[in-house]
Structures are given as C-alpha cells and as structure tokens.
Design a protein around this nucleic acid. Sequence first.
DNA 1: TTAATTTTGTAACATATGTTACAAATAACA
DNA 2: TGTTATTTGTAACATATGTTACAAAATTAA
Lengths: 220, 220
Amino acid sequence: MEEQILASRLFKGISMEELRELFKQTHYVKKSYSKDSIIVFQNDRCINMILLYKGKAIGEKINYAGKVIVVEELHAPRVLAPAILYIKDNRYPVSVYAVEACEVILIPRDEFVRILQTNKQILFNFIEIISEQTYFLTKKLALYKLSLKGKIADFILQQREMSGKNEISMWSHQRLANLFGVARPSLSRTITEMQQENIIEIENKIVKIKNLPALRKLAE
Amino acid sequence: MEEQILASRLFKGISMEELRELFKQTHYVKKSYSKDSIIVFQNDRCINMILLYKGKAIGEKINYAGKVIVVEELHAPRVLAPAILYIKDNRYPVSVYAVEACEVILIPRDEFVRILQTNKQILFNFIEIISEQTYFLTKKLALYKLSLKGKIADFILQQREMSGKNEISMWSHQRLANLFGVARPSLSRTITEMQQENIIEIENKIVKIKNLPALRKLAE
DNA sequence: TTAATTTTGTAACATATGTTACAAATAACA
DNA sequence: TGTTATTTGTAACATATGTTACAAAATTAA
C-alpha cells in the first residue's frame, strides 16, 4: 500500500519514512471497494481527500433521462476530484464506480489542510495537480473553439514540435476523429481538402508540411 | 493600498494587522504601470505571484498572423494567472496590458509558498481561487458540447433554479447570443423553434416553461 | 499467396449554425 | 405625442459537420 501511495503525484518526492510519520499523525480511513460498487455518489458533498491507490474506476454522470454517460477513467494512483475539495459548491459532479476492486484512503479535508501546511512538498504537489487541471482545461477549451481544420493543424504542429522533425507520422483516422470528437468521414474529407489546398501532403502515413504559415493560421 | 489588497479574494478574511505583520516579514515589490504599458509578456515565465490591486487591465493574445485577440478583462483586485505559478510550463499564455494606470504587488513564488504555509486562511483562499477556475472551466466545457437549444435550455433551467420561480425574465437576444458565442439571428431562430415545439412560451420578456422534461433533456 | 479484416476515400444527403439584409415591433427620448 | 434608436423576427443563402452507405485500398491472418 505505501509504495502505491508514494507513486501518486500527490506524494511525489516524499520518502517512506516521511509518509509513515505523516500517517502516524493523521486521522485517515482506509476503504476497499469490490468490483461494481460505487465509491462516491454524484451530488454528494466532498469532505474528504480521496486517494485511489489501487484499482481502476470510472466517473459516470446520470442525466435527466436516466442515461449513464461515462465521463472519465480513473486509474490508481490518483486523487479523486481535487478541485472540488475546497470550494463552496463541493458536490461531486459525477459518480465514481469501481470497475475492478479498488482501495482508497480518505483524509478529512480539515486534516488534509494541516498536512498541506506541514509539508511543503505535498502542498506543492497538490497545488500543481489542481493548477495543471486548469491549464489542461484551458487548452482543451481553446481547441474546442477551433474548426476541424484548426484542430488538425494544431495536432500536426504539436507533433512537429515534439518530434522536432518536419515530417510527422500520422495516426489512424479513427483514432484522430475520436480525439477531436468528430465523425470519421468528416475528418477524412477535411484532410483531403487540406491536401487539395496544398497545405499538407500525406503519403504512407507520413505528413509533410507544405505550407507552414497557412497551418499556423488555421491553428490560430 | 492595504484596503484594496484586503478586498481581494486572496486576502479575504485577513485583518489589517495580520496583513501588515505579513508584509513586514515578506520580500515583495510594488510596481506601478502607466496606461497602455505592458504588465506581463506572453510566454515570459511566471515566477511571481502578481496581485493587481488597483486599475484595470486586459489579457491579450497575439496569434501567428500578428493579430491581437483580447482574451479577458482583469479588474483589480485580482491575482494574475494563479494557476500558472506552480506548474512546469509556467509561461504566461497571454500578455497583460494596462488599460488604465495600474498598481501591482509582486511576491516571488518561493516567498509566497512560505506565506501559504504560515497562513491557513490565505492557503485556503489560494486553493479556492484555483479550484474554482477548474470548476468554472469544467462547466464551460460541458456547455460547449451542447447544441444551441441545449444552451438555451440550460440557461432557462439555471435561472429557474436561482429565482425559484417557474417564470423567468428573459435577457435580450443580443446579450444571450454573446453569452453563448453564437450569432444573434441563430439564437432568435432557435428560440422561435422551441416555442413552436411548445417547450417554452415567451411573452413580454417572460419565459414560461411548458415542457420541463423536454427542457431538461435538451440540457442533457 | 489467398482470404478475411480493417482502414480509407468519397458521394449524397441531413442538420446546425453563420451571414446578410430588411421590415416589424418595441423602447427611449425630445 | 411623435421621432429616433434599438431589438426582434424572418428569409435566403452559405458553410461546417454529421450520417449512411459502399467500394477501393491496405493490413493482417491463415
């Protein structure tokens, strides 16, 4: 258990001794959930820092029609809903459901504040986790505003930056369409258009950038 | 100056004495910016907690075509980019530009960590500010996925919940269209459709809900 | 190598939203 | 009250993306 906890982002940089010391001084609860049980209920108030340190769960939302929508996958080790812990409207936006046997640690949020104040590293980690969510969401939101061509352009430019090469290996259309949340034929059509406009060229799953300024403009 | 600082969310719940004591023990820099000067540059690294305590500024983004896009308005008192302060890629996503004379306080982030550890209230406030950004962005993202009818339905349901009444006073189409980021005639058309479908009825700027389940289904 | 499976391109049509333009209705004001 | 400015409804058309269907091409398995 302790190794798994130390592997989490929240406890990154903490030594085993520190962790043990910390846990000695902290009221916490360990809980196990069997497969298919519910770990937190949508709309319940979040008053505990919950660290899923073993197992896999999914976040599900139930809409008015009673239909269940899977929102995200949660793999251990990870903190559930860190951004909900210290806000006024602290109700879980989703239910979390164990898809395999799960184990969690609950620390009451007042207790957890004490930890944050005592331990600089954990404070850092916690702030970083929430901050990166904000960062990630901001990026995602910016992407949403782009047209499909813009999303494709952004993807290609990002791949280019990461690999440092001008030629990017292409994902399957299906995978990309999923990533962008669009229909596969729409993606195919749009890629074809971008080739006709001589912005890119694809051969053997390799993308060649033919008109970098145009690509940048599309990605805003 | 101290009153303005105390009016900020970051220092909410702090007394004047506490603030003075805190500032005595902290290295900070006070800076003034004249109208039209730039407070932070896009892509610069963020290593200071910056509190704008007087004035008004805007966040601007410069795209590849060199065109400037206004991203958000920043009214004092407010912390600039709190979510950028403690993440790896800590570059400002926007430039911040003073639209009137501005005054800010800069606290180096290592110094600021010490404050967070010393003062529970400020720690709470800071975490709350970041967390609410996450929360707000998550909601915004969920809204984005809705169709225009869905956005209208969501708006009406939210107004209903806030007022507790079944009859909601309507905003102007222009204002709503801006809120949703759609064209005004599109909004008008869609509202007309919803009336034809007998989901809502609008008379004298008052919305009456005729079919609540349908409305809820639209808002997911 | 052949057969089976998966991926891709494309056409035809459907739907949602944007754009422009203008007239009708309403509100604000002199 | 009449005049002006603003808001609303609506039509006609443009564009982006979704949906369905199917054949061609590529990949994988036998």
